[in-house]
């Protein structure tokens, strides 16, 4: 079964993948918004999404650690790493303390800020194109504006999560 979804935020995406798994559908692959599922036992797998150091590549060290822990790398997409582990092997959380969670969300926020900066440049180029008479440039400008808004929204959400985690951390230390 194939489903198409556009997620900019990994938390609802993870929730959705786990909901699908609880319904007996295990994610097998991902490509540009297309999620391919295959039948599995209901709740057989737990999914998590990590954010890697390199796009479309994980280090041997990462791979080895995950394999040793019974974690399977399902798909690599950009910096995103979709992972799963058998529910029978116990709980599956990637980040178990506030410090590492903050680090994780900061990396994601940084990526979004970079993407937004690039999109703004592209947007300007298209607007200039539109003004100088290339009609189709306006279409691209709108498309880029929509993408930028989606990334902006995701970045805003990451910032909120980071602020909440920081407050939690400081609350303990104060």
């Amino acid at each position: 079964m194939i489903r198409f979804r556009l997620y900019f935020d990994k938390d609802p995406e993870t929730e959705w993948l786990n909901w699908m798994a609880s319904e007996g559908w295990a994610l097998k692959g991902f490509f540009a918004g297309f999620y391919s599922f295959e039948k599995c036992g209901k709740g057989e797998w737990i999914y998590q999404i990590d954010f890697g150091e390199h796009a479309y590549h994980v280090s041997d060290e990462y791979r080895e650690l995950m394999t040793d822990l019974g974690i399977e790398i399902v798909a690599l997409w950009g910096f995103w790493i979709i992972l799963r582990k058998r529910a029978a092997d116990g709980p599956f959380e990637l980040y178990t303390d506030t410090e590492s969670m903050i680090g994780h969300y900061r990396k994601i926020l940084k990526m979004f800020m970079g993407v937004i900066a690039l999109e703004l440049i592209c947007f300007l180029v298209e607007v200039i194109g539109g003004v100088t008479g290339t009609g189709i440039a306006w279409g691209f400008a709108v498309l880029i504006a929509v993408l930028t808004a989606a990334c902006g929204r995701a970045a805003f959400k990451m910032q909120k999560v980071i602020s909440r985690l920081e407050a939690e951390k400081n609350g303990i230390e104060q």
């Binding site: 080895e64 650690l65 040793d68 822990l69 990637l94 590492s100 994780h104």
Partner: peptide, 25 residues
């Protein structure tokens, strides 16, 4: 890595269970 997670769990009687991402980082 796996040994570290197990040892930390034993030392803390299950209180500290390191996630894969936390450990790798």
């Amino acid at each position: 890595g796996y040994g570290v997670i197990q040892e930390v769990e034993e030392l803390t009687k299950g209180r500290v269970s390191l996630g894969a991402g936390t450990l790798y980082g």
